[in-house]
Amino acid sequence: MNAIIAEGLVKTFGSGDKAVKAVSGVDLTVDEGTVVSMLGPNGAGKTTTVRMLTTLLPIDGGRALVAGYDVADQPQAVRSSIGLSGQFAAVDENLTGRENLWMFGRLYQLSSKQAARRADELLEQFSLTDAADRPSKTYSGGMRRRLDLAGSLVIHPKILFLDEPTTGLDPASRLDLWDIIRQRVRGGATILLTTQYLEEADALADRIVVIDHGRIIAEGTADELKAKVGGERIEVVVHDPALMQRAIEILQRGSDGQCVVDEHTRKLTVPTTMGSKGLVHVIRDLDEHKVEIDDIALRRPTLDDVFLELTGRHAEDEAASTDAAAGTDAAAGTDAAAKEAAK
């Protein structure tokens, strides 16, 4: 059963020559009870997609079903089935935590009593009981974010939209929030989570869709995406530049992949399918041939590698070049990655 289905979603801002397609043809399905992370840099179209799916923005093209309801035709039914927690902690800072949650409950059409009881439960679950009767403007950033998330859970929504829930939080608060999100998942919630943090998608999501320039450029599990960059690699930093060629030959021998050479840092990278056994072989061979090394490591690909491969630039590289469309084709991507590595 699909909790969220989107087909060919389009959103255009502005009109005429100035029209900008923020989202151009996004297809997305999220199965019930799973976490899908939408991963992409700033301006990729993540928030716009979420805003369309949560009825905040009219859909310009395509259609979307959330909890079985058509977003365009049955917005109130969608709103009754979802919780949304955005980038900004959208709570009333002059109200206390308890008052905020009570108000949200009342606006979800709970009775005053139900809303008060639910507020108590949520304050307890989110460790906000001690601060419950203080105006929320006195809260720390992490506490506000927790309150905001609590606000989106008032009606036990089946589907949660979390738009960059940890952006701007300190590491400890981020881990707290991850725990809370994992608890929701264990409780059976369906979550669409947007993030620009690769490790966040890796840590929380069952499936990842990579979005860039308003299009989905890849999707799969974290492992599937990592497999696209060719599994593990061995990285060697050679001490003496004169021995580079010998080192390359050795590395090439134990691998069916291409050895990437960075002359400047004397770093050699080669794909391996043998894991740590391959690493042992390489160390032994290098030692036998008297190639001194400064550093050697078996490196598992990160999602950043995936992004680099797909787009030719780093995911968190804000000043991305305009001709970043290196394509989704794996070969072209490898070239781009190689070029990037060769710089």
């Binding site: 805003r51 009825t55 109130q76 949304l84 959208a90 009333d92 949200f104 059409q109």
Partner: peptide
């Protein structure tokens, strides 16, 4: 906050 309100039924 307006966004929050608009996402509520």
């Amino acid at each position: 906050l307006i966004d929050r309100f608009r996402s509520l039924p």
